[in-house]
Design a protein around this nucleic acid. Sequence first.
RNA 1: GCGCCCGUAGCUCAGAUGGAUAGAGCAGCGGACUUCUAAUCCGCAGGUCGCAGGUUCGAAUCCUGCCGGGCGCACCA
Length: 584
Amino acid sequence: MNLFVHFRARVVDILEDMAGAGMLPEGLDTSRISVEPPREETHGDVTTNAAMVLCKPAGMKPRDLAALLAERLEAVEYVEAVEIAGPGFINLRLAPSFWHDRLAEIMGAGTAYGDSFVGQGEPVNVEYVSANPTGPLHVGHGRGAVVGDALAGLLEKAGFNVTREYYVNDAGAQVDVLARSLHLRYREAMGEAVKEIPEGLYPGEYLIPVGAKIADEDGDKWLASPETEWMERFRGFARDEMMDLIKDDLDALGIEHEVFVSEKTLMDQGKVQAAFEDLTAKGLIYEGVLEPPKGKLPDDWEPREQTLFKATEFGDDVDRPLKKSDGTWTYFAADMAYHCDKYARGFRSMIDVWGADHGGYVKRMQAAVKALTGGEGNLDVKLCQMVNLLECGEPVKMSKRAGTFVTLREVIDQVGKDVVRFIMLVRKNDAHLDFDLQKVTEQSKDNPVFYVQYAHARVRSVMRLAAEEFGADAITADVLAGADFGKLTDPAELALIKAMAGWPRLVESAALSHEPHRAAYYLQDLAARFHVLWNKGKDDASLRFLLPNNRELTFARLGLIQGVAAVIASGLRVMGVTPVEEMR
RNA sequence: GCGCCCGUAGCUCAGAUGGAUAGAGCAGCGGACUUCUAAUCCGCAGGUCGCAGGUUCGAAUCCUGCCGGGCGCACCA
């Protein structure tokens, strides 16, 4: 349960009762009432601004209204104390038994703790990575991949019906370039000496085995023929091979998209044309000449009549061209049709994860979604800022030409998938991220991955010792769920349960605001509280988890730490990180 | 020139729909190992939330204008 949602409902109940008794006006707007954790833990467990928000319509002073509310809140189950503070906050302190019940709830749920229904099964489409199929993924793609996948996981946990999707940009000129680059490698595989990769072709060595593969399959069939004859074959072959390469990279991160949509297929199926006709029917297409951008003019700018979409009617800055001068569709036209297709497949809610360099593209895509869905569809775009790859604080110098470019795969192989996934989430998506290959594998509290994993491993370590003492069967989650948690009375123990009980609220708010990084911060906080309690056991042996002479208390505490492990595992699962059993 | 993002402690950064005395880690200083792994923890110190106005019971948060940084700006994707 989200305890804040629970107590908010109680506050609203009381307000309705008061209105019914004529103490308050009927039909008060309760939407602005918040029930949340106080900023200061010393202020209690739950706070509400209800009196401050409603004092004006109620025609009362905030503290007077607060006093009336407080009187009634004292009668609410589990409320131990009510205080009025500051300008009219009402602070609730909850009985220890409330927290003990939460721990039982956590034990019963395991890693399912925090699962929510706020999403109400609403379909959400999360599109991420969508890198051009022209080569292996780089580290920047990796960030988008992790952010998108964690967001998808978070939304699922919050009760949305999520589809993970990848848009394959396989219709543009860059695939022609790829095909030509592959043809070169093919000739090389057939025994031709290739001295230098011509300017404008992809020099990467990853195409060498692909060239050998197509040589193996097709033999000398394309050696003497002109480009027009082999182009289609090479484009398709290269595309498929590159997508396999990318899928392997994603697989190494534990990411698997359910749906791949091909730009070329959309065009072949006439979906771009259909979207275009839809907009035309809505009167949103015209032939026109755009104003040149103010300020410095592009060198090759010249007035040109184009086929334009009235994006400005939907909040964009200028109208956007849908056709190139040769009559083919622009990238935007196809992407527009793609989002239209998502909507047609039942997604009102769409999320795209892009690199920050595509920021200028957001408004027009949102405009297109509004136009094509009659305002029904909603597109949120998460822009991921750059990843600075470092080694002991020094920037890793990368150059594609010099062959010193570090791929995502190399980073995963070096530090591990779990480290990559966690680190990619320690900053919000729109902030630059420093990724230090050295620091992320250090075993110190500076390293958030380690810090959180260590907390989980410590729990497992205690559980292993407990299994030796009591037998594994005696301390299963099911058995411990029935322990007498009333024995947990130390403030640090209760603080730990309170932190765990905050997980459902975090899941809901992070999911609704599309901010997966908050899970990483939450886990660091929870891990910190666990480490605090652990160390208290050093100063005061009576606070240790394993007490040979007190089986009842020991079992309650094993439940407590098992709960911590479950919530950490639950959070890590959202992030796509595997919890470790022990540190090595 | 226009648009988007950002500006919080010496450093790196949290601060959901506006809430109380703005938080954490690192770095600095001082402490805690006969251990359920001290790979951790405790304490101290550190701030005109870029600047100036505005909105209101209340602003780091919302609005306006500046200053500073990043990204983008027709027929690339």
